[in-house]
Design a protein around this nucleic acid. Structure first.
Lengths: 183, 183
DNA sequence: ATTCGTAACGCAAATTATTTGCATTAAGGG
DNA sequence: CCCTTAATGCAAATAATTTGCGTTACGAAT
């Protein structure tokens, strides 16, 4: 009686894939506020009730999709120097997130009410990237930096301005943040 | 044919007030994800269609309510010194926003898709507060500070950690941010 | 004050989304 | 290969959202 675990293979996985793909496709085609669960279900070739049972709400589903999209496929670029690595990472982060799609993903991730869900997983990617850059710095014998502090000084302001839309997050602005962080 | 403007007085205002009050009351009582438009309508004594026509969606309504709640009723406290004013403001901001209700408000404000809506209005309050503190500093002959930079160094990290839930936003942490900003 | 034009509302019907009960399918272990 | 049961499909039931239309009541002008 060890009971069954969550099933991962076969049909279940196929459906998750189909639903995610349908969601991504719709996010590209039509406005996010016009997307509905039945719409995604039809495109994915499943019944709406399946989606409701597995994801609960449209918000949760879109958050799940967003986290998946925000997961980096590759580690941070190795430019040979810590400052170069940091600049490459921060500029790419800002560019990805400030696009209309990126902004929508960010909002979807945060909309998920439960704090122990998608949000932490999502910003964990940022910690991991910076950890790796810091580890490289140490391996090179360069001066190390504090990862949480680096997030406070660069990533946090970038997210703030993207989410509140109170200013443009340009490359120049990102470099200013990096200079402040280095001081 | 200059025609009618948006109506503000009388019935229209009463309904807006009733709906806002009903929303606030429900936000205190039950989980945000369980709140529905018909629920608010009943509590406010209006028909659901009125809410749908005026606010469009539940998200937009809650964002509207959130902005209203986040609007400060009073200016920043005058402690006699700039560092004191800043500390008072930042600590109060963090405390307000990190509560379950504050966090929900923050999420609601951001969930509203259109960037030119509630979000800007909401963070404008922060700019205004800091502007006033900076003006006081100048009036006292103290060294001025750059308001956008202060936001980047204090408010932005606070919002980031509240929204992503990756760390606790304690008073000690806020003071650390203020010390960094002063350096 | 009274009248007039119309924005905002209430009501109810139509549409659409969400939930739920039950039968069926297919993982995954024995 | 069989057995248990998680996950799905289907369809009915419920709830939310939209919409048409008649009514109310701002607000402007007379």
């Amino acid at each position: 009686m060890s009971r069954e675990m969550v099933r991962q293979g076969g049909r279940s996985a196929r459906i998750q894939k189909a639903v995610h793909e349908a969601s991504r496709a719709l996010l590209e085609e039509i406005d996010r506020s016009k997307i509905t669960v039945p719409m995604i279900a039809e495109r994915a070739g499943v019944t709406p009730s399946t989606i409701y049972r597995r994801w609960g709400t449209l918000t949760d589903l879109l958050a799940d999709v967003a986290v998946e999209r925000l997961r980096p496929v590759t580690g941070p670029e190795d430019t040979g120097s810590t400052s170069g690595d940091l600049e490459a990472f921060v500029l790419q982060y800002a560019e990805e997130m400030s696009s209309p799609v990126g902004r929508a993903l960010l909002r979807d991730v945060m909309a998920e009410a439960q704090s122990d869900g998608a949000t932490i997983r999502c910003c964990q990617y940022t910690y991991d990237h910076l950890d790796e850059i810091a580890a490289r710095a140490a391996a090179r014998g360069e001066a190390p930096f504090d990862v949480p502090e680096m997030i406070d000084r660069t990533v946090a302001p970038i997210c703030y301005h993207i989410l509140f839309g109170d200013r443009d997050v340009s490359s120049d602005y990102c470099r200013t943040l990096l200079q402040r962080a280095a001081a």
